[in-house]
Lab assay of single mutants.
Amino acid sequence: MAEQVALSRTQVCGILREELFQGDAFHQSDTHIFIIMGASGDLAKKKIYPTIWWLFRDGLLPENTFIVGYARSRLTVADIRKQSEPFFKATPEEKLKLEDFFARNSYVAGQYDDAASYQRLNSHMNALHLGSQANRLFYLALPPTVYEAVTKNIHESCMSQIGWNRIIVEKPFGRDLQSSDRLSNHISSLFREDQIYRIDHYLGKEMVQNLMVLRFANRIFGPIWNRDNIACVILTFKEPFGTEGRGGYFDEFGIIRDVMQNHLLQMLCLVAMEKPASTNSDDVRDEKVKVLKCISEVQANNVVLGQYVGNPDGEGEATKGYLDDPTVPRGSTTATFAAVVLYVENERWDGVPFILRCGKALNERKAEVRLQFHDVAGDIFHQQCKRNELVIRVQPNEAVYTKMMTKKPGMFFNPEESELDLTYGNRYKNVKLPDAYERLILDVFCGSQMHFVRSDELREAWRIFTPLLHQIELEKPKPIPYIYGSRGPTEADELMKRVGFQYEGTYKWVNP
């Protein structure tokens, strides 16, 4: 592979701008107003304001973009700056750019259920340069409990009458099928589907988006991507930290609602779906819905739930269990780990287990898709061969690698495990991989909904998990304890083995 010439960040961002501006969906010269509902909250200060700053800094926003914060707290732009700027990672050389960014910011205080507050917000936006005809993007960085009041008031008082209007809704989209349907029906009564952007930030990850290209742009994968060759698929999300004093919020939802029903299920769809007619948003989402419709409700015998306990040999936070978090209700049975087996009941995947695993306070930070292939028929190497695996590593250190057998150097035919490896950090030294939120917010500006969740996708996802969630809430089974920093409950490994996964433990990928 030829040595790549190092590029400056300015040059890299210039390439990104060229890609972005050559499309006809990006209205570079139009006025846009980006409204952050819930501007005083954690999500706004840690993710949304920093993301908008990065896009502005790199010249990736339309030229005439204004940012308006809205929340109940009586704040000023200076207050917003004070709480969000520490997350910007701005350099001293960017000081003038930073001043320009905050000059485009404003803030309006108001209630979430008060019509007069929204009329005041609308008047404020109209007073901005060309504000009355601007395109408006409303980001709901809010708890779902206020979605209905907020969307109703936005629709009645704050819509642009000339430009387009788009609304970005953060997960969780309800707690179960019934609450999700209620919320979807409410929002759909106010906005068209092409105006609604239900954001799952995992769909903005580079390697998640790469799944489609790997599958449908490489001839070698087509013939082997089926039940005849693939023994099982494992989708993993692991965090090495616990709730760390923020367990009160987590306890309301648990690990299945927080990660599995959305992030992991979306990745499953991209692995299992048929080739779409095109890369058009609805063509892709149509195929994802077909996959979900082929999955039956989760069966309790295919589920393992766990909850982390303190590690007596650990240090600091590792010595504390979930129930030691003062914000967690006493005696909570909320799971911090889950392993679930699903089956896609169609011709391509009949009988292939899709194993979804996620948890907190585990032994490493990792998100990946792992396809394990069947054993080689007619073994001539005296059971020395391990199964081939194709691994798409989402985070950290984005990579695609194939675990395969090669001859060990020497005189004899002794096979050993090795890999074919594409590590993004080595291959793409001159490429700026956008943060997931950067990519998705740019998608909203461009009107691309491919990486957002459609209402029928959402409904099918909740259909699969709601009976299990209701059973857990009714019966309150005690989750299996696992030690902070471990791989999780051993019962999860036993479940995976029972459905056909072979864990060798003899080879570990190392970032080159």
Rank of each mutant, 00 (worst) to 15 (best):
D194F: 07
M125Y: 02
G14K: 15
R175V: 06
K152S: 13
R72F: 04
E244K: 13
N210V: 02
G254K: 04
K45D: 02
E148Y: 08
H124S: 09
I220A: 10
V150P: 05
L75E: 07
M159A: 13
N165E: 06
T151Y: 03
G204D: 03
A6R: 14
I52A: 10
R166T: 00
E206D: 06
Q178G: 12
L142S: 00
Q22W: 10
Y197P: 02
Q111R: 13
N229Q: 14
Q195Y: 04
S189Q: 14
E170H: 04
K152C: 11
S40G: 09
E18W: 07
S188Y: 05
N185I: 10
G245W: 07
Y112K: 00
I256K: 00
H27A: 12
L60I: 12
G38I: 01
E252M: 12
P240M: 09
K238C: 04
N153M: 12
Y147N: 01
E244F: 09
H186I: 10
R72A: 02
I15L: 10
Q161D: 13
W164L: 11
L130R: 13
F173K: 04
E94P: 02
W53L: 00
A231S: 14
V12S: 15
N185L: 12
A71M: 03
R136K: 10
T236C: 07
L55F: 05
D194R: 11
E18T: 08
I15M: 14
D114F: 08
K171L: 03
F26L: 07
S73V: 00
G245N: 14
H124I: 07
D30H: 12
M159E: 14
G245Y: 10
E99Y: 07
S106N: 09
L98K: 05
R215I: 02
P86I: 09
Q119C: 15
G41E: 00
K97F: 07
I220G: 03
A141P: 04
E244V: 14
I48H: 02
E193M: 00
V233G: 03
E148T: 15
L98Y: 06
S8R: 10
L20V: 13
H27P: 07
S157G: 12
T91D: 09
Y139E: 06
L75K: 12
Q195E: 14
T145L: 06
E156D: 15
P240W: 08
I224K: 03
G59F: 05
L75T: 10
L121D: 03
L203I: 01
R81T: 07
P143A: 07
G163E: 03
R227Q: 09
R215Y: 03
G14S: 15
F101W: 04
A231F: 04
D114N: 13
N64S: 11
I255K: 04
K95N: 10
P144V: 02
M159F: 15
I162P: 14
E85M: 13
M207W: 05
A109I: 11
N135L: 06
L60W: 07
T76H: 11
T65W: 07
E19Y: 13
G242S: 07
R120H: 13
L96Y: 15
Q111E: 13
D79K: 08
I256F: 06
E170K: 01
G222Q: 12
Q83T: 11
V169Q: 03
E239T: 04
Y70A: 07
N229K: 00
I67F: 13
I187F: 09
G248T: 02
R57D: 04
H201P: 01
L190S: 08
K205T: 04
L128M: 15
D194E: 14
V68F: 07
D30C: 14
R227A: 09
P50Y: 00
E99F: 06
A44D: 00
C158R: 02
T236N: 07
V233T: 00
I256W: 01
I187D: 00
T236K: 05
D176E: 07
K45P: 00
S117A: 15
L177P: 00
N165F: 07
S84D: 06
V150Q: 02
S188F: 04
N135W: 04
P92S: 14
K82N: 13
G222T: 11
F216K: 04
R104M: 12
C158E: 02
Y118W: 14
W225E: 00
K171M: 02
G59Q: 07
P144A: 07
F216P: 04
S84F: 09
F66G: 04
I230A: 06
F216D: 04
I196P: 02
D200T: 05
E63H: 15
S84Y: 14
H155I: 03
N185Q: 13
T91H: 12
I80L: 14
T76C: 12
F56D: 01
I196S: 04
G163Q: 04
S157W: 11
F101H: 00
N226R: 07
Y249G: 03
F26N: 10
G23Y: 12
L183T: 04
D79E: 15
H155G: 11
G110Q: 02
S184T: 15
D200F: 02
F241E: 04
Q133K: 14
E99G: 11
R246N: 03
R227W: 05
L16K: 10
S160V: 12
K97I: 14
I15E: 12
K97C: 09
I154F: 02
V12D: 11
F101G: 01
A25Q: 10
N185E: 12
R219M: 08
E148D: 13
Q119I: 13
P92Y: 12
W53E: 00
I15H: 10
R198W: 05
E170Y: 01
N210W: 04
Q161M: 12
I256M: 14
G23M: 15
